[in-house]
């Protein structure tokens, strides 16, 4: 059998997770080689495995390639303005603590234009999950550099190489007190899905940085033109180290400098909701 025939035989019209996917919206808009399909799959796996009723799950996303994910998940889903999904999720979670609110959006959305909301939401420890898909670039809008673009990397607005240092996001989130901080790539499907499952259980702000291939955008500027170039990059450069020194997990994408993955932080921190209940007690509303 040729490889083509094998593939053809494996194409199925239904998926066991169809109840969680808006199939009527497919084909999706993502490029060949993109990691977002994997993110979507891991998220619906995590939801299905969670003990939370599916109708209590809410997804909020912002603008960009990743931002479209809310439109493909069959949940209450909100696709809001650029950079603001975390603030939207906070308002929703605060008035409805019974909802399991997850923000899935891109690096440009969540930590560049929306960076201020990110740091304050972590600091407050609002009980939401933030799955940030980092492809190192503004994909949809035209491959511009952003706050996660590695130093020296090229893009449509850094033709001479990015002259800025990028964020080290696990360090940032951990420094702000996040109870759960992890980083995986879309190659690490099982670990990513497991981290998401854990994030849904964690009380408080659960943060996962998901390193995702972008062959058409970031890759075309940086000699990673095929999905498999990213897979090779991840295979050869990723090191799993759950107890890594977060000062040293910044991503450079330079040869010989690893991408460090792991479930770095998992701890208990009082949540905004718990602290607000204390306010309600002091105000006389609760005994």
């Amino acid at each position: 059998m040729s490889q083509k025939q094998i593939l053809k035989e494996k194409i199925v019209e239904e998926s066991p997770r169809d109840d969680l996917i808006r199939r009527e919206r497919f084909p999706h808009i993502w490029c060949p080689g993109c990691g977002l399909g994997t993110v979507l799959k891991c998220y619906v796996e995590a939801i299905a495995a969670s003990n939370i009723p599916i109708d209590k799950h809410v997804i909020v996303s912002g603008i960009g390639c990743t931002g479209r994910i809310a439109g493909y998940v069959r949940l209450d889903s909100y696709h809001v303005t650029h950079g603001r999904p975390i603030a939207f999720a906070e308002g929703m979670k605060i008035v409805r603590p019974d909802l399991e609110v997850t923000v899935i959006s891109g690096d440009g959305d969540l930590v560049t234009i929306g960076g201020n909301h990110f740091i304050h939401a972590v600091r407050r420890n609002v009980d939401i999950n933030v799955f940030l898909v980092n492809n190192f670039i503004y994909g949809m809008t035209g491959n511009q550099m952003g706050s996660t673009t590695p130093l020296g990397a090229k893009s449509s607005t850094s033709p001479y190489g990015c002259p800025e240092f990028p964020f080290n996001l696990p360090l940032l989130a951990a420094a702000l007190g996040a109870p759960f901080v992890a980083r995986w790539t879309t190659l690490h499907v099982r670990q990513l899905a497991d981290a998401m499952k854990r994030a849904l259980q964690v009380k408080g702000f659960a943060f996962i940085e998901i390193i995702s291939p972008c062959p058409v955008g970031f890759g075309s500027y940086n000699d990673l033109r095929e999905g498999r170039d990213f897979i090779k990059l991840f295979l050869e450069n990723c090191i799993v180290d759950h107890s890594a020194d977060l000062n040293k997990v910044g991503i450079t994408l330079r040869p010989g400098e690893p991408i460090i993955l792991g479930n770095f932080v998992d701890r208990e921190v009082p949540t905004y909701h718990e602290l607000e209940l204390e306010v309600f007690r002091k105000a006389g509303w609760l005994k």
């Binding site: 909100y78 603030a87 939207f88 308002g91 929703m92 605060i94 008035v95 304050h120």
Partner: peptide, 13 residues
């Protein structure tokens, strides 16, 4: 910005 966005989130709830 966060204030009115959070207001919209609460309203959606």
């Amino acid at each position: 910005i966060a204030s009115i966005v959070a207001v919209c989130g609460a309203s959606a709830a």
